[in-house]
């Protein structure tokens, strides 16, 4: 099966390393994909706050574009790695299904610009694809550098499993844990998996956002995690790049490796760190590399 890859704005900028590692893992697992041609902004959070209908049109345009691009394929599976994009595409589909009047308006508008919204495409998160299409066993077979001795705290953030997605539990998701167990790691049982990291407020109201990130990082360290894996570009940026600000504010030490789940999976599949965008992280994941080579962590 071939997938349509919808990067969204952030995977082309702050989340560039997410894109690099995701596509490298796709290649390594033999997953075929095509990037969505002439995609536009998904219409996420901020847009919904100003004009809802336009936000739905933006999302619907992407879905319609995908359906057009894959018109000869049996199924249209859109892979949306960014949580906000993933959620908003799902939300749009659900909203239009429940509100036939709006569906008619939006269909007509898209028709004007030569697009046909069929509402047939399936919106998929990469974790969903790895677990349900490829399977843990298949992935386990391809692991060349098992993550032995590494304690992974998988972190989904808010919009990956809430409120529309169905591939995992909304309160205590476990798919990422399955993935890393298959890659030979130990997984940390913690309650922070879907707790908001505050990213959408870090840029605007930092005094509210930083404590949220602090709670997550502090808890990960307390549960003796070696690495926090994220599935959202805002989360990764927020949890990694603000560590020094957090430490200064709370007079603490939250230093812990925070990387994309695709980066860690890529390393386990034996891919070059550079191909996985590891060099784009703020700090080299020192602990991770040390433990993978059988050594002791530097910062605890």
């Amino acid at each position: 099966m071939k997938y349509i890859y919808y990067p969204g704005c952030s995977l082309k900028s702050t989340g560039k390393l997410y894109e690099e590692s995701l596509l490298a893992v796709f290649d390594a697992l033999g997953i075929e994909y095509e990037e969505l041609k002439d995609w536009n902004c998904c219409g996420a959070t901020a847009y919904m706050a100003v004009d809802e209908k336009k936000a739905f049109v933006l999302a619907a345009r992407n879905i319609a574009l995908a359906e057009q691009q894959f018109k000869d394929e049996e199924e249209v599976n859109i892979v949306a790695p960014c949580s906000a994009c993933y959620m908003i595409l799902l939300k749009t589909q659900k909203f239009l299904e429940d509100n036939p009047e709006d569906m008619a308006v939006i269909k007509a508008a898209l028709k004007e610009s030569g697009l046909d919204y069929k509402a047939k495409a399936k919106i998929r998160h990469p974790i969903d694809v790895f677990i349900n299409d490829i399977g843990e066993q298949e992935i386990a077979k391809r692991i060349t550098k098992p993550l032995k001795g590494i304690r992974v705290a998988s972190y989904y953030g808010c919009q990956t499993v809430r409120p529309y997605s169905t591939f995992d539990d909304q309160r205590n998701p476990v798919t990422m844990d399955k993935l890393f167990k298959a890659a030979g790691a130990e997984v940390v049982d913690w309650t922070m998996k879907t707790r908001c990291c505050g990213a959408s407020l870090t840029g605007t109201i930092q005094e509210v956002a930083l404590p949220l990130s602090y709670i997550i990082l502090h808890e990960a360290k307390k549960r003796r995690a070696d690495v926090v894996t994220t599935a959202c570009s805002l989360c990764q940026f927020n949890l990694e790049c603000y560590q020094t600000n957090i430490d200064k504010k709370f007079k603490t030490d939250t230093k812990i490796d925070v990387i994309y789940f695709t980066q860690l999976l890529g390393l386990a599949l034996g891919l070059e760190p550079k191909k996985l965008g590891i060099n784009r992280l703020f700090a080299k994941p020192e602990n991770l590399f040390r433990i993978m080579e059988g050594g002791k962590p530097v910062y605890v």
Partner: peptide
């Protein structure tokens, strides 16, 4: 309204 980070925890 402006502090809401749209994390959907309340909705769930």
């Amino acid at each position: 309204v402006w502090l809401c980070a749209s994390c959907y925890a309340c909705t769930v």
